[in-house]
Every structure is written in C-alpha cells, then in structure tokens.
Design a protein around this nucleic acid. Structure first.
Lengths: 154, 154
DNA sequence: CTAGGGCTGTGAGCGCGCTCTAATGCAAGC
DNA sequence: GCTTGCATTAGAGCGCGCTCACAGCCCTAG
C-alpha cells in the first residue's frame, strides 16, 4: 500500500532522534561552579528570559536573590541553578502555580521529598504524553511535506 | 563517575521512545470514510475540544461547515479531517494567525503549494526544537525523580 | 556638578486563545 | 400548545504569563 508507506516514513522521521540531546546540556543541572555572581542583565541573557520575568519570578516567590550594596540583584550559582530548573519546567508547560507549590516544598526541607517526588512523577507523565503528541504533530507535518514536495503540482 | 551515570540514565530514559506512537493514530490523516456527518456535540467529543471552540474556529475562517435545514452545523468528513489537522497544529503550538494564513493558502488552490511547503518545513523545525526541549525537561525530571526516589531521606 | 544609563519596586496593561453570556429559534415529546 | 433541550449569533469576559510604565535611586563619565 502506497499510503501506508508514506505514513510509516512520516512516522519514522517523527520518532527517530532528531540530532541527539547533548549530555552537556544536562551537566549544568549537577554543576557547582560557585564563582558565578551575575547581575540581572547577565542572568537574563544566560537564561534567555526577559529581566522583567526574572523580577516577576522573584516577586511571586520562586527565587530569592541577594542584593549588592547598591540594592541591585546578584544572582549566585544556587539562584541560577534554581532558575534553570524553573525555566525548564516552564517551557515544558508546568504552570506557575505548581512551581510555587514545588518551591514551597523545597524550602520546607527534606520532609517534603515524598510530595515533591509525586509532583515530578506526575510531570513525567505529562511530558511523555506531550512528547507523544508532538511526535504525532511532527508526523502529520512530515506527511504534508512529503505530499507537497513529493509531487510538485500534480 | 557517579553523577555522570545518573545523568546518562536520565538522558536514556528521556530519549528512548516511551511507548511507541501508534500508526493507527496517523491513518485518520489519509482516511476518507465519507459517511460521517456529525453535529457539533459529536464533533466536539471526537476532536476533544469545546463546542465553543469549534464555533470560534469557524467564525475566524478556519473551517466552513454546512448547515442542516434547522440551521444546525453538520460536520462532514472533509471538515473533520481539516479540524483534526488544525487541532494537531494547535496543540503543537502553531499560532492561530499562522493557521489562518495556511488555510487561506489551501483555499487559494494548488498554486500556493510552495508557500505551504515552506510553512510546513518551518513548523517541522519548530517541532523538532520543541521535542528536544521537552526531552531536556524530561531528563531533568527523571534526574529529580532518581534523586528523590533513589536516596530516601539521605 | 551634572547628565546618562541602568537598576529598583509596584501596579497596570496586554496578547492569546479560548470560554461564556444573552437573546433568540427550531423541533421533538407529553 | 407548551415545555425541554440544544442549537444559533455576536459580543463580552477571563486566566495565564508575562511585559511594560512610572517614579525614584545609585553609580560612573565627563
């Protein structure tokens, strides 16, 4: 069947790892180069988010950030690590309300580990479902591309 | 290195295909069972979107839907197929403005195939990037899970 | 000493994509 | 015939997550 072949090909393209996730991107999660002390502009640049958003996150209690003697924010390694995690969770669709809850738990100490684990397990499910969705969308897109490119003006 | 092992494991979990995308989910894209004639409630149920949203999509020109003699919407196979595609694109983050443009092109006929192809190619890039992002988020989540579950109250 | 630029906090504004409201209408069942 | 229920339309409203505006402060360069 011709259509089935096209579908299978679209599926293959959609599911095959695109270009490999670099392990370096992960290492930062465990890293601890405690020399960093960034101002808000630098932090925003590295995290690729708007400085306004950084202030906003602090306002709603997602991070605490120390000030220098001019009253300006100084982002240390711990703050940056937390923000990396937060932005990862945000870009993967975790709502701010959940993040506030999670941070609340983190700040409450070790006794909250079980609930945090629950949250992460749930988010893992969400992520898997989301990835599956995106792979379907990718397959649909590949299919359209094949249709459009394969037979130019039929 | 212990940390590296944990990272690699998290990565493996994140990138390995979770439970396989069913090819059946794709087949509907090419299907043509022209017997379908759904009212808005049925269509909404099948597409898993709010009836209000269906009306909204029609209002902004994403689909045209015929009426029965009571003036109620009747979704035929063509409309449903288009809506399946539209919702897939929506859930994968394509903005409504782009979808309007795309539909405009589709309705304008074969001569717009090259531009449609461009749009799909661009969306494919977006999707791949998005999936990569999600896999990073998933890896981060797996890492947290491993931390929380692996060493209960260290 | 002064001007400029970038920071500060806080409240308001905004864009997106729905989602609901309100007024009205048709159609089947009792 | 009347009620019940789901449909219709256009327009208003809303929740989320930023994003910006404003007024004031501090530091540095000239």
């Amino acid at each position: 069947m011709e259509v089935d072949d096209a579908l299978r090909e679209a599926l293959r393209l959609a599911v095959d790892p695109p270009d490999g996730v670099a392990i370096e991107s992960l290492r930062e999660l465990a890293r601890d180069d405690d020399a960093t002390e960034w101002d808000i502009a630098t932090a925003a640049e590295h995290l690729k988010i708007n400085p306004h958003t950084l202030r906003y996150y602090e306002r709603i209690g997602l991070v605490q950030v120390a000030r220098d003697n001019a009253g300006h924010r100084r982002y240390d390694a711990a703050a940056v690590r937390r923000l990396v995690f937060l932005t990862r969770m945000r870009t993967s669709g975790m709502p701010i309300s959940d993040l506030r809850r999670y941070i609340e738990l983190v700040d409450a100490g070790q006794s909250t580990v079980p609930e945090r684990l629950d949250m992460m397990l749930e988010h893992r499910d969400t992520l898997r479902a989301q990835i599956a969705q995106l792979q379907l969308a990718l397959a649909a897109t590949e299919y359209k591309i094949a249709t459009y490119a394969g037979a130019p003006q039929p």
